[in-house]
Design a protein around this nucleic acid. Sequence first.
DNA 1: CTCGTCACATTGAACGTTCCATGGAAGATG
DNA 2: CATCTTCCATGGAACGTTCAATGTGACGAG
Lengths: 342, 342
Amino acid sequence: MPRDGADQGRRRVGIVDVAAAAGVSRQTVSNVLNGRDEYYSAATHEKVTSAMRALGYQPNRAAQTLRSRRTMQIGYHIFGEQLDRAQGFTLHFLLALVKAGADVDHQVLVFTHHRDDPLGVFKDLVARHAVDAVVLSESSVRDERARFLADSDIPFASFGRLSPDLPQHWVDVDNVAGMRAVVDLLVAEGHQRFAYLGTDGDQYWKAERLDGFLQRLSHHGLRVPKASVFRGPDQGVRRRAHQLLTGKNPPSAIVTGSDAVAAVVLSVAHSLGLRVGADVAITGFDGGAVGLVTEPTLTSARIPVERISRELIARCLRQVEHGHDGEPGLLLPTELVRGGSA
Amino acid sequence: MPRDGADQGRRRVGIVDVAAAAGVSRQTVSNVLNGRDEYYSAATHEKVTSAMRALGYQPNRAAQTLRSRRTMQIGYHIFGEQLDRAQGFTLHFLLALVKAGADVDHQVLVFTHHRDDPLGVFKDLVARHAVDAVVLSESSVRDERARFLADSDIPFASFGRLSPDLPQHWVDVDNVAGMRAVVDLLVAEGHQRFAYLGTDGDQYWKAERLDGFLQRLSHHGLRVPKASVFRGPDQGVRRRAHQLLTGKNPPSAIVTGSDAVAAVVLSVAHSLGLRVGADVAITGFDGGAVGLVTEPTLTSARIPVERISRELIARCLRQVEHGHDGEPGLLLPTELVRGGSA
DNA sequence: CTCGTCACATTGAACGTTCCATGGAAGATG
DNA sequence: CATCTTCCATGGAACGTTCAATGTGACGAG
């Protein structure tokens, strides 16, 4: 559909048009726009805002960026290769990040690395003024992305702890405390025979969840047989769950390292005709959408993605504004979500 | 870490610096940058590029955008509410979109709607020059987003068909042809007793997949008992799969409407001790990561996300450049992925 | 010899905003 | 009364690029 001829010639309404309509200067409009309220009176504010409304004025981001050197955009780096079962969580997190960004008037630019120059994109984005800062997730402790960003003096924040010799721009979940809450709940409900199922991999949080589980059990004076603890490949979970539930003296509560694993265990229990929640308790860790669509819903330690996103963005913006960030790393508690599975 | 004092004062290297270093004019550098090769000689090109390399020049996006009115960014709208099982696919698609964008030097900005003004963000983004165009996915045929974008004269493209009275800026998957290929494969392998499992919902593609399945079966002179066709809620899938596989005269091939459903059926078959691929064949539809981590891997009609993303972006850019796009809607074939499950 | 054309290169202006320095009027202070 | 603040407001310049128009020298045609 071709544009109107009339539309064609009309210039976009800019700050000068607003200024003219309101009978003030350019700069005053700019001040109102940026909320520098020490520089204008209430009456002027009113005149300007109503002129903006009347003209349907929208500030031009490109011009703002060019002059102020702020893009109001935050980059989010996403790995292209490993499209594994963390998918659900990644999207959940991304969405939270987008919303948290929107709340402080920032937008999220998603990018992946290029095959030949995996890190260059980061520098590129900032050098070309495409983003003000970068958010990382799925970061392992020695993440070369984080090191590169720190070395290049690019503002960033990581969901996941960072090596101690890097600036501590991270937010993370307290896995141990999360497991503590889960175990406490199960113990309070009278469970005595526990089992743990998780997937393998060298991510520290996987180890922490298992450790947190074991620690808290022994705090309650309970022990778990070695055979009832499993951390292995994805495919092994189903078999092991089957073994556990059909063996003699089966566990009354199965704690898992993630909602994804819990969902598998749930399905095994179902197929054995067990009533989950009554005959056997199953817990997850994550609290995202997965556990809400299972039947029954999962009891889980919920990762507070909204809060995490907010904190990550706050860390980025402090660096952008002050050139540095005094805040230390932040370990956030999980929230216990009570579903029907325990 | 505070910046160097020396670093502080140094101006960013711009096009004029390159021009000076190369001994040419501003505009010539700009022409080289934008590949307008009819305006410079090979020798000049060489001088300019080597000057750019020497100075580590990076063009400033904000300035380019301000002048040229192109942001080189494409918006991708994502629904905030429905974080359901489509997650895996959504992320898969997003990633493909990001890569396809990168190939044509465009980046992807992710955004969600605001509670009070669900559609306003679209206009906002374009009016403020944050994105050049918008990509929609999960669009239903009468999508109010698409209508709004068309009415507002904002370039866009949709993954999913659009109402005939809208400009046909869409790309979609040929579900019927996909099912045809799946059925043909199973028939060629000698299967006679079929069943179909899918989830309910009013999305046209769900209906199309079932229709495609039924059509192709009858083309082969085969029929499927009514009881062996199921389209119901998520939770019903497990039960129905169990019924089918334990009933008398069970199907030798179970065709499903998505990889997610197939994965569930797979797990039911496993728990019944069936050897999937040998005792029973199971197929999916999607071909994303889900089917690659199952055991065995899924045979599935793969949705060509890379191609789709490329086409969507091409549609957007044509609209941006010419103000319109002559191309009609595009229905793409699936690719049959042969896993171990059939 | 004049003119037109072609290939390449240049310059002034503009895009729309914010930074920076300055100005004026009213009220407070000495 | 002179001067010093405080509050509000202003205009010139700059951010770094591309648009649009113009220039120049070489070469071929008339």
